[in-house]
């Protein structure tokens, strides 16, 4: 089993990677580069990026539910400022968040 790198409550930033070519990615486009907080560790699952190409012996990767503030995700968000969105993200798409929250500066 792979030990999860992150714990609930950790601030994490989603990798701003935009691969092209033949691919199967479970990290939605709109959330790449955004910063949120780990809500829970879901467990470790075979990497769907490999499963999608028939590699059924794919390595397991920790999967997290990460919670984001909607106002951080969408510049023009009009709902309640406390509204949130939870997304499942695999560990190899997450990085420890930079402490001075530079993601909000742009």
């Amino acid at each position: 089993m792979t030990d999860p790198l992150f714990n609930p409550g950790d601030a994490v930033t989603v990798s701003a990677r935009f691969p092209t070519g033949r691919r199967h990615i479970r990290t939605p486009f709109y959330i790449r580069g955004k910063t949120g907080e780990v809500e829970r560790v879901c467990g470790a699952y075979k990497n769907p990026e490999d499963l999608a190409f028939g590699n059924y012996n794919a390595a397991r990767v920790s999967l997290y539910r990460v919670r984001f503030d909607q106002r951080h995700v969408w510049d023009d968000y009009t709902g309640n400022p406390n509204d949130t969105i939870d997304i499942e993200i695999y560990e190899h798409w997450l990085e420890p968040a930079v402490t001075e929250d530079s993601s909000d500066a742009t």
Partner: peptide
């Protein structure tokens, strides 16, 4: 625009309540 979409279902969520969206994209 979750609140706008919910309105299209006739569902109005009190502005004081938090709306939490779950994007179910992986294994849960």
């Amino acid at each position: 625009d979750p609140r706008g979409v919910l309105r299209e279902f006739g569902t109005e969520i009190d502005p004081a309540r938090e709306v939490r969206v779950h994007d179910s994209t992986a294994d849960m």
